[in-house]
C-alpha cells in the first residue's frame, strides 16, 4: 500500500469522466435488469451501493459470447471476405472483482499458449482492468480456497477499495501505476486510510465461510477419474444446461459457425459449453455422450487438466456456478466429497 492514493466518492464520477477522454469506460450497470459491465453513462456511480458482481463474468468483454470474425458478401466476381473494422480504442473496465480479474490471468495463458489468439489478445492489450475490492462477498463465494481472496489484486491494473467516504486507490501493474501517478484528482492516502482499508479487507475475508481444501484435488480427481458410480451420483441432478460454463469466468471453450443467408453472412465465434450434449458434435459425435462424463470433464478441466498444464486451478471461486445453477449443484460440495487418495479403489 506504499504509494496508495484516494479519491472522495463524490469525485469518482469526475475521475471516470477524466478517464473517459482516453478510454471507453465500462462500469457495473443494471439498466437492462441484470448486473453487467456496460458503457458508463457519465454520471451514475450508484453501483458502489448495490454492486456485488456481474452476471456475465469479465471474460465476456474479451471473449464475447458471440463475435464476428469476418463477413462474407458477394459481388460480380464471387465472394468477398472482410474483417470487422479494427477497433483501436482503449477500454477501461471499472469495478472488476478480484475473482474476475484473476480469471483474466488464467485465460491469458490459454490464449497465448499454443497459438496467439488475435481476437482475445488484442482486446486484452487495449484494456485497463480497474478492480474493486470485495467488501460484501456472497455466501456462494469461495475465492479464498483457490489462491484468491476479496482483496487479491492478480489481474488488475489498479485496485479501488471502498473505505467509507473515500476510495483507496492503488496502482498494481506498471500501466496502472502510471495512470494513478499522473492523476491530479487523486490525493495521497493517509496512514489512517490504509489502516481502514486493511481492516475492511480482513473483515471481508472473514465473511467468506465457504472453504474447501484444494491442496491435493488434482491427485484426488485423478484417483477417482474412472469411478463411474461416483460420477453418476455427483451428476444425477445436473440438467446439462450451460449456466455454469457460459457464465464461468474461466471457461473458454468456443465454437465457430457460419451465419449465412442466401450465400452471404458472417463467420462467428461463440462460447460453447462442455455441459451440452451437442458439444463437439461438429466433427462426429460428442465423446462424452453420458451426462456423468460431461460433469466429470467440467470439474476435471478446472481442477485437474488445467493445473497439469499451467500449474494453477482454473477456478476463481466466484461462486456463479453455485448461485445461478437451476438445481443448486455445488462444486465445492463435490470437491469436498472426493475420496481421499488412499481411499480410492484405483
Amino acid at each position: 500500500m506504499a504509494d496508495s492514493k484516494k479519491v472522495r466518492k463524490e469525485d469518482l464520477a469526475g475521475l471516470l469522466t477524466e478517464w473517459s477522454r482516453d478510454y471507453a469506460v465500462l462500469a457495473p450497470s443494471r439498466a437492462d435488469g441484470v448486473a453487467r459491465m456496460a458503457a458508463w453513462d457519465g454520471e451514475d456511480i450508484s453501483f458502489l451501493d448495490w454492486y456485488r458482481n456481474t452476471i456475465n463474468p469479465v471474460k465476456s468483454l474479451f471473449l464475447p459470447p458471440v463475435e464476428e470474425m469476418f463477413s462474407i458478401s458477394r459481388n460480380e466476381r464471387g465472394h468477398r471476405i472482410e474483417l470487422p473494422p479494427k477497433d483501436d480504442t482503449g477500454c477501461l473496465v471499472f469495478g472488476v472483482r478480484p475473482c474476475d480479474a484473476r480469471s483474466l490471468i488464467l485465460l491469458d495463458v490459454v490464449f497465448e499458449d499454443a497459438y496467439e489468439d488475435p481476437y482475445y489478445l488484442d482486446r486484452r492489450r487495449r484494456s485497463i482492468v480497474v478492480g474493486l475490492c470485495c467488501t460484501n462477498p456472497c455466501d456462494s463465494c469461495f475465492c479464498t480456497s483457490v489462491d484468491s481472496g476479496p482483496a487479491a489484486t492478480a489481474g488488475m491494473d489498479i485496485m479501488f477499495t471502498d473505505i467509507g467516504d473515500n476510495l483507496l486507490v492503488e496502482g498494481i501493474s506498471r500501466k496502472g501505476k502510471e495512470l494513478v501517478a499522473g492523476n491530479a484528482t487523486l490525493a495521497k492516502a493517509t496512514r489512517t486510510d490504509e489502516n481502514r482499508a486493511r481492516k475492511i479487507r480482513l473483515a471481508a475475508e472473514k465473511k467468506i465461510t465457504r472453504k474447501i481444501d484444494t491442496g491435493d484435488s488434482k491427485e484426488r480427481l485423478l484417483a477417482v477419474f474412472e469411478d463411474e458410480s461416483f460420477w453418476q451420483q455427483v451428476s444425477a441432478k445436473c440438467v446439462s444446461c450451460g449456466v455454469c460454463t457460459l457464465l464461468c469466468p474461466t471457461c473458454y471453450c468456443f465454437d465457430i459457425n457460419d451465419a449465412m443467408t442466401g450465400g452471404e453472412g458472417s463467420r462467428c465465434r461463440s462460447l460453447d459449453s462442455c455441459a451440452f450434449s451437442s458439444y463437439t458434435k461438429m466433427p462426429m459425435e460428442n465423446p462424452r455422450a453420458d451426462k456423468w462424463r460431461r460433469v466429470r470433464n467440467k470439474l476435471c478441466h478446472k481442477y485437474e487438466f488445467y493445473p497439469m498444464l499451467f500449474d494453477n486451478i482454473a477456478c476463481t471461486g466466484c461462486g456463479r456456478c453455485i448461485r445461478l445453477c437451476p438445481v443448486n449443484w455445488d462444486i465445492t460440495q463435490v470437491l469436498d466429497s472426493l475420496p481421499a487418495k488412499h481411499e480410492s479403489k484405483i
Binding site: R74, E76, G78, T261, G262, G263
Partner: peptide, 14 residues
C-alpha cells in the same frame, strides 16, 4: 428485415 435467399440470384451466382 434480412433479405430472404433469392433463388434466382443463388442459381446464377450473379
Amino acid at each position: 428485415g434480412k433479405k430472404q435467399p433469392d433463388a434466382e440470384k443463388a442459381k446464377t451466382g450473379s
